[in-house]
Structures are given as structure tokens and as C-alpha cells.
Design a protein around this nucleic acid. Structure first.
Lengths: 193, 193
DNA sequence: ACGGTCACCTGTCGATCGGTAGGTTTCGTT
DNA sequence: AACGAAACCTACCGATCGACAGGTGACCGT
């Protein structure tokens, strides 16, 4: 049996890469993408910087892997989603400040010029808004309380989630992120169902 | 008359510093704070990096001046504010993408460890939330529609403003920031006045 | 047993970073 | 005219950045 631990070479390699991505997530949370150094990521997994470059030939390649990991981690909502599941997602996020911090830092950086994650976030938000609108429509119908449409409510939903994350990260003791998000959902009223 | 242009030496110096701060705002908008280099700011005002260091001895000192400038630029709301003035502020912001981008980038960076603007933003949001709550109370009284209190609504108001800015910066053509913000205000219902 | 691929290393590079040291010029004050 | 301070410069520093080149050893399939 190869490697003596039941792993093929390929599986072992993927495990190593996953370990690196996890370390990159942590380093980006601490210093942002521009502030994150390949050497810092390498050290965290017990490699030299050049050993790291063997797995990810450039810094951008590592970022791509990080963003891909996020896509696996939280699936984009679509019409099958229920809005109250979002509340659970926010609650779960409140237990994972590290991950939240990583992507909040990346989102903030991404609005700067030529940032490698800019296109990713632009497309992601387009998809997320569309998915949210679809979810709202299946749950509330074409008309939300207060005369809003699902399409006009979706950006607000996304904005509240993101904005609360920044306030919560800066001052966790002063902001009840899940509670505030539930407050917002209450503003939307009860679904017709 | 000194300087032949009616300016004292002190006024001339302050003008120069203001010019530098303006350049720093632009560079930070393009590259964030960590990505902004003193040399880039200096070049934009026609100085060498060392000439810039004469006016601001460290990079952090320049950042402090930038943040102070913001405090002059948009005053924190208090109980004398009216909520519909916020809509005007958002509308105004939509005409100044550069400034919005600067502070959105800074906010994103500020959640990383040891960021020099972290304390600034933490305190600022505490003040802003308190001011918003006071403004909401004078306008809506102790109870908002849907049973919310001013204190619980304020974080949502701030979150919507910030979150919409990110979506708008990433894809201005797809997000109507002022319109979406007015939609949110409509969710709050009509003030009792 | 062997050839080859994979994982990782040492060594090094040029660019850029923020910051220091120490001039020199400009200009208002006296 | 003389002085001093402010403004800005050249020159340089050590550290750090991402990345390239070229090796070495372990482990795989054959």
C-alpha cells in the first residue's frame, strides 16, 4: 500500500494543497491579500517559500484557490433557498470570525484598481443578488410588503449581511450580528406562505 | 506682502499639506493603504518621497491626516439629523466614487490585525450608531414600525449604507445605490411626525 | 533494480518598501 | 545685509517582496 497511510500520491498532494489554502485563509484574515506574504503562508505549513511555490506557482494562483474554496464553502442561494436559512447562515458565520474576516478583508481590497479578486466579487454579487431575488420570489411572491419587488430587495439583503459583518468584526461586543439580521428580516414582514 | 500672493508662510504650508492629503486619498482609493506607497503620493504632488516626508514624517502620520479630513468632510449624525438627509448624503456619495472608494478600501483593511485605522473605525462606528439612534428617536419616537427600537435599527441603517457602497463600487451599472437606500428607508415606514 | 516524477530544498535576483542622514536653496524677519 | 527656519533635495540603508534557476532525495510504477 503506497505511503503506508492509505493515501495515493494524488490524494496526499491534494491534502497538502488544502492545508496550504487553509493557512492562506488565516494569513489573509490577519493581513489582507496585499499584506499577506507567500513566506508567511509557507511558514505556517512548515515549508519554505519556494516549497510553497511548488504547489502554487504564483501568489495569484493561491488566491484563486482560496476563492474557489469559498465557493465550495457557502453555496450561492437560489430559488430553492429559504430566507430563514440565511439567518442560520449568519448565525453560523458568527461562530467563524476568521473566515468572515478573510472575505471581508478581501471584499474591501477588491474595490481597488487592478485587484485580482475584483472580477470574482463582481460576478459573485451578480449571482448572489439574482439567487436572493429568486428565493424571495418563491417565498413572498412578486410583491414584498411596502411595495418592494424581490429584485429591489435582494441588494438590501446582501448589503445588510456585509455591512453587519464589518461592524461585528470591528466591535464584536457591541454588535449582535445574528440578532440584527433577524431584525432586518422582520422588517420584510411575514412570507405569504 | 509675503509670498506675493497674499499668503502667509503658515497658510502656504497648510495648503501644501492639504494638497498632499488629497493626493493620498486618491492613491489609497487606487491601492488601499497597505498598497499605497509614499513615493506614489509624492509623485502625484510633484515631490520626491523625502520631500513628502518633510511634511508627514511617517506613513501613519499621513493616514491620520486623511482620517481627520474625513471627519471634517462628513459630520457624524446626531439627534438634530433627519433621516431623509441621509438619503441626500447617499445621493451625494454616488457622485463621488473616489472618496467612497477610499474609505471602503480603508474599512475593509481595518479589520485586519494591527491595522492603523482599526481603532479609528471602531470608535467612529460607535459614535455613528449612537448618533443614528438619536436621530431615529427624535423622528420616530421610541418604537419603530415592526417593534424595533432606535438602538436596534441604527446598526441596520449603517450596514445598508456600507454594504450598498461595496456592491455599487464593484458594479455601478447594476446597483442603484441611492434608490436602494430609499427603498430601505421605506421599509422603516413613515415617521410619526 | 531502475527510471522518472514529485516534493521540496538552497541560492539568488531585481524591485520596492518606509525611513535616516545630511546637505542646499528659498525666503521672511530683523 | 545677515540670520534662521522652512522646504525640499541627493544619497543611502536594511528589510521584504514575489519569483526564477537549479539542485537533491524520496517514492512511485514498471
Amino acid at each position: 500500500m503506497p505511503y503506508g497511510d492509505g493515501m495515493t500520491a494524488r490524494a496526499r498532494s491534494e491534502e497538502r494543497r488544502a492545508e496550504i489554502v487553509r493557512a492562506a485563509l488565516a494569513v489573509i484574515a490577519e493581513r489582507g491579500y496585499r499584506g499577506a506574504s507567500m513566506a508567511a503562508v509557507a511558514e505556517r505549513v512548515g515549508l519554505t517559500q519556494q516549497g510553497l511555490l511548488h504547489h502554487f506557482p504564483t501568489k495569484d494562483a493561491l488566491l484563486v484557490a482560496v476563492l474557489r474554496e469559498r465557493d465550495r464553502w457557502d453555496a450561492v442561494p437560489d430559488s430553492r433557498w429559504r430566507v430563514d436559512l440565511l439567518a442560520s447562515l449568519v448565525e453560523y458565520n458568527a461562530t467563524r470570525p476568521g473566515v468572515v474576516q478573510t472575505f471581508s478583508a478581501l471584499l474591501g481590497e477588491s474595490v481597488t484598481e487592478g485587484h485580482p479578486a475584483r472580477e470574482y466579487f463582481t460576478e459573485r454579487y451578480t449571482r448572489v443578488r439574482a439567487g436572493m431575488a429568486a428565493a424571495l420570489r418563491t417565498e413572498y411572491g412578486d410583491r414584498l410588503p411596502n411595495g418592494l419587488t424581490p429584485e429591489r430587495t435582494a441588494p438590501l439583503l446582501v448589503a445588510v449581511m456585509d455591512g453587519l459583518q464589518y461592524q461585528w468584526l470591528l466591535d464584536p461586543g457591541s454588535v449582535d450580528m445574528p440578532g440584527a439580521f433577524r431584525d432586518f428580516l422582520r422588517l420584510l414582514g411575514e412570507p405569504v406562505g
